[in-house]
Amino acid sequence: MTARVGDKLPPVEVPLTRTLIVATALASRDYQDVHHDPDAARERGGKDVFMNIMTTNGLVGRFVTDWAGPEATLKRVKIRLGVPNYPGDTMTLTGTVSAIEGGVATVDVRGANSMGDHVTGTVEVEVVPAREAEAETEPTRKC
């Protein structure tokens, strides 16, 4: 695939069902009660069960590879958490390519729900294998 700085990724809407929050916590082997037990979550100050950070990371990674395709390789995912992802809400993931260097695209990612930003961060994804990237960039330097 070809990516350019400024390219916008197709937004992805993630319906935050209770089932999604519980299933993804268990798929990441995270058995902390706040991710599946509403009473325990409320006792600890939450409004309800909420998404675990590994799932946020996984969804951010998926968002970028859905755009970059199966040939792409994730190199780095850096995220900062904001408001929690509670059941009944929707998280909308948006992203913009902010840099490309040596076949690796940096994508600025944001995942927002009705309360604000749940996640902001950057993902580095190798969109072109390193050897091809070198070959591709050579001629453009000559122009």
Binding site: A23, A27, S28, M54, T55, G58, T65, D66, P70
Partner: peptide
Amino acid sequence: RHWCEAMGDGNLRYAGGTEAPPTMLLA
């Protein structure tokens, strides 16, 4: 497979079970 189903990740790279999603690292 369990992770990809829950995350809704249909990436062909993981579909055959030959490679793991890298974001599973901590799991």
